[in-house]
Design a binder for these strands. Structure first.
Length: 818
RNA sequence: GCCGAAGUGGCGGAAUAGGCAGACGCGCGCGACUCAAAAUCGCGUACCUACGGGUAUGUGGGUUCGAUUCCCACCUUCGGCACCA
């Protein structure tokens, strides 16, 4: 029985700030390169400073912190940095809404969030803290841009871009969402615009990005990326119009060339004007105009009604010589392949639907195995499977397995095209017509063109005195004294580039800046790079699978090709957390009113309890609904630990009790060690609770103050230290151990102690549990068998039955088959 | 439509080189302490049962001595992609 008056109460609000201050003063988590120790770079995705720390931030950062702490105790030199992804649209939107400067808004948020971040009790290295909106950071973002430009990984082109009329900016392809193609931030439907834009050549590394051989990443993320990169192999084939103009098409099915019955060009295809005949011009122009405004109409496109118009022009099929009509249709995209296709309605579902809609001929050239060739008039869908080639001139009769190869070879030999690979991945559009970002370091000169800002003139500072209200132009365009300058090459009057960079550029290399955030001879200190890189464990949300995680891999490969970094991959191991949902099981949102605020929880329970609950309530990778009663259990757990370890009790336990206690303690240590290694956080807390239950029994049986009890307490504190660092440190001190618990080595399992006195042998009949027999450890299969068969329960059950077989699982189980 | 993840008590979730299903916690019930309550501590808690057992891990099959775990088909939920030639 615990008398709560005899020992001080557990007051997290006192001990947590106390230890946090001490750890920081003692620089406990500020590692330096140390070649005598194995290094571990644990990186958690930095956050956008939106105002307040959300419970989701805790979920993203605290379980990785427990693991970083574990790795530290295991003897690794651990680097666990923190920073702020500070450029971006929300600051400007807030600025517009509340009439406050984006910079002021952002930095005020960062200050508030820093305070909240410290309350978590994470082992961040605060020296590494960086803010991507600081000139000393974006100077180097600009520097990277210039290196990429120099090495051909950055280029400028006039491009149709998706533009959000509400945010007044262009959007990357992945920021446009859904059938109606709306903006990911404000849900406004996007429109198309032609602008001169800067791109990073991500496609240059498309093939290499598909190689995951060096990475321990979740299958799921790799699959998403592979799909996003979208590699397809086939051939580019040149058709010619009757007038002799070449039209290139990409096809993955060169074996269907003889089945082409028409061609379709994208409405934006440059040849459309030339091909269109006088009589068709009005209709074609009308269709193109309507296609251009597609943002709204794309919804209709989703029900797959095929639309299009005939241009009046004809092309010649290069293998058969047949003359085929050329159409335009919006199902052919200018942005993929060459913007033109050869249509094979018999063997492509989209072409089939188009042919049916406009009564175009269908020609069957593939005969799938085991079925007769389909009748074009009777077909209800395209036959897309490979098969033997028929009606295909000289290649007729080619079997399915060889059709792709043979047809490709045919195309190359007859010089009508060649094998080609196409990717769905596009080059990365990095220009943004926005104020709150890193200015693109380019100056336009009438004589010299686009001139890079010389490196010694970086950073190109973002001016503070701007009109940030949206006008459709970059706010920097409205700042004459900033905009107009002189050409660094020839000295003539010139203009600055007024676009800023996509914030994904900032976040593509922050893990490098963390190494030395104030280093000014380069983007990072090469010595630090050599020791710490690559990132060993990267953790964050799955939502970054296709954007950030592709960009950062590309960035590293491009930087490698520029000779700036070594290694092929920036982050070796990736793990994703799930999402904390509201108590109603729905995504947390202000409008639903189901938001859980971590500050309130810390006030009420203390950070240790919040940490413990977040780790305990579900598998980290899975996430799940919050429970305000569930957290009570973790609060109780810590109070129980507090009193149980401090409150003396009667002594005089039996040998057996003490052995069992020691056994359980070491078994727990073994399982927790492997749980930490495998990111199985929830069972760490379960195991600790189980051990505590065992300790409560042992204490009741007189184990208090025995050597076994003291060892169990010591192990317990060490095991809970990564999860609940404050209470562990406090009790560690109260038990008389030397500061700091967080600098102790992780304890070793005594394997001998984990062997139990008695082992329960499970006896089944026909796979059904019938009896349990307690045996001494180390029994043989034969002993298990005879013990099972001689059990009275089993003998009774076996009466009148014949034993067919007896299966023995060594040390565990006997199954009698009758 | 395609791709991926997941379906286990009242709830969150344990357990998978195939071997005691439901660890741990919440909730609930009973008891102790208390004038009483809270807190705390102890015990119990899948379902059915003629008390011998029987049935249960989304549904239906299969492999196996034995399946939550492996295979096939289907259903549901969540996430991603969406005419990519």
């Amino acid at each position: 029985m615990i008398d709560p008056t005899s020992i001080p109460p557990y007051l997290p609000e006192e001990i947590e700030p106390k230890w946090q201050a001490r750890w920081e003063a003692d620089a406990l988590y500020e590692p330096s390169p140390d070649p005598s120790k194995p290094k571990h770079y644990a990186l958690t995705m930095f956050a956008y400073p939106s105002g307040d720390l959300h419970i989701g931030h805790w979920y993203a950062m605290t379980p990785p912190d427990t693991r970083a702490r574990f790795m530290r105790m295991r003897g690794y030199n651990v680097f666990f940095p923190i920073g702020h992804d500070a450029f971006g649209l929300p600051a400007e939107n807030a600025a517009i809404k509340h009439n406050i400067h984006p910079k002021a808004w952002t930095y005020a948020n960062i200050q508030r969030m820093d305070k909240q971040l410290r309350m978590m009790g994470n082992s961040f290295d605060w020296r590494s803290e960086l803010i991507t909106a600081d000139p000393e950071y974006y100077k180097w973002t600009q520097w990277w841009f210039l290196q990429f430009l120099k090495n051909g990984f950055a280029y400028q082109k006039l491009a149709p871009v998706d533009f959000c009329p509400s945010c007044n900016t262009t959007l990357a392809r992945e920021q446009v969402i859904g059938d109606d193609r709306h903006c990911e931030r404000c849900d406004t439907p996007v429109i198309r615009k032609d602008l001169k834009q800067w791109f990073f050549r991500t496609t240059a590394h498309a093939e290499e990005l598909l190689d995951y051989s060096q990475l321990d990443w979740p299958e799921h993320v790799k699959t998403l990326q592979r799909k996003w990169i979208g590699k397809s192999e086939g051939a580019n084939v040149i058709f010619h119009t009757e007038a002799g103009d070449p039209i290139e098409v990409f096809t993955t099915r060169p074996d269907t060339l003889w089945g082409v019955t028409f061609m379709v060009l994208s409405p934006e295809h440059p040849l459309v004007d030339k091909i269109t005949t006088e009589g068709r011009k009005a209709e074609v122009d009308a269709y193109r105009a309507q296609a251009k405004n597609q943002s709204d109409m794309q919804r209709e496109a989703a029900d797959r009604e095929k639309t299009g118009v005939f241009t009046g022009g004809y092309a010649v099929n290069p293998v058969s010589g047949e003359h085929i009509p050329i159409w335009i249709a919006d199902y052919v995209l200018m942005s993929y392949g060459s913007g033109a296709i050869m249509a094979v309605p018999a063997h492509d579902q989209r072409d089939f639907e188009f042919a049916r809609a406009f009564n175009l001929p269908i020609k069957v050239v593939i005969q799938p195995e085991g079925t007769p060739a389909p009748d074009p008039d009777e077909m209800t869908e395209a036959v897309q499977a490979y098969g033997a080639m028929i009606n295909s001139g000289p290649l007729t009769g080619t079997p399915a397995e060889e059709s792709f190869e043979t047809a490709s070879k045919y195309v190359e030999e007859h010089q009508i095209g060649k094998r080609a690979v196409n990717y769905r991945l596009h080059d990365w559009l990095v220009s943004r017509q926005r104020y709150w970002g890193a200015p693109i370091p380019i100056i336009y000169c009438e004589h010299c063109g686009a001139v890079p800002v010389p490196e010694d003139q970086l950073p190109v500072l973002l001016p503070d005195d701007v009109e940030w209200m949206p006008t459709g132009e970059s706010p920097l365009k409205l700042h004459p004294s900033w905009r107009f300058t002189t050409c660094p090459a020839c000295g003539a009057p010139a203009e600055r580039e007024t676009d800023t960079m996509d914030t994904f550029v900032c976040s593509a290399w922050y893990h490098l800046r963390y190494l030395s955030p104030h280093y000014d001879n380069g983007p990072f200190d090469p010595e630090k790079f050599a020791y710490w890189m690559p990132v060993d464990t990267y953790t964050g949300g799955i939502e970054h699978a296709t954007m950030h995680l592709i960009y950062t891999r590309f960035f590293h490969k491009a930087a490698r090709d520029c000779g700036i970094v070594t290694g092929d991959e920036p982050m070796l191991q990736l793990r994703n957390q799930g999402m904390v949902l509201g108590e109603d099981g729905e995504k947390m949102s202000k409008s639903r009113g189901n938001v859980i605020a971590p500050d309130d929880l810390v006030k009420r329970y203390g950070a240790d309890t919040v940490r413990a609950y977040l780790i305990f309530f579900s598998r980290w990778q899975m996430g799940g609904p919050w429970s305000s009663t569930g957290i009570e259990g973790n609060s109780r757990w810590l109070r129980r630990v507090w009193y149980m370890f401090q409150e003396p009790a009667e002594q005089g336990a039996t040998e057996q009790t003490l052995r069992a206690l020691r056994c359980k303690a070491h078994q727990t240590l073994r399982s927790i060690t492997s749980d930490f290694e495998n990111f199985e956080f929830n069972t760490i807390v379960s195991s600790l609770m189980e051990l505590l239950n065992e300790m409560a029994r042992a204490k009741n049986a007189g184990a208090w103050a025995s050597a076994e009890w003291n060892e169990a307490v010591r192990l317990y504190l060490l095991m809970m230290a990564p999860v609940t660092p404050h209470i562990a440190e406090e009790l560690w001190e109260r038990m008389g151990y030397a500061y700091s618990i967080h600098q102790q080595p992780w304890p070793e399992v005594d394997e001998e102690a984990t062997v139990e006195d008695k082992i329960t042998l499970v006896v089944q009949i026909n796979g059904k549990l019938r009896d349990r027999i307690s045996l001494n450890p180390g029994f043989s299969d034969e002993q298990a068998r005879s013990a099972a068969l001689s059990s009275p329960v089993i003998q009774e059950a076996l009466e009148g039955k014949t034993i067919k077989r007896v299966i023995v699982v060594p040390g565990k189980l006997v199954n009698v088959v009758v």
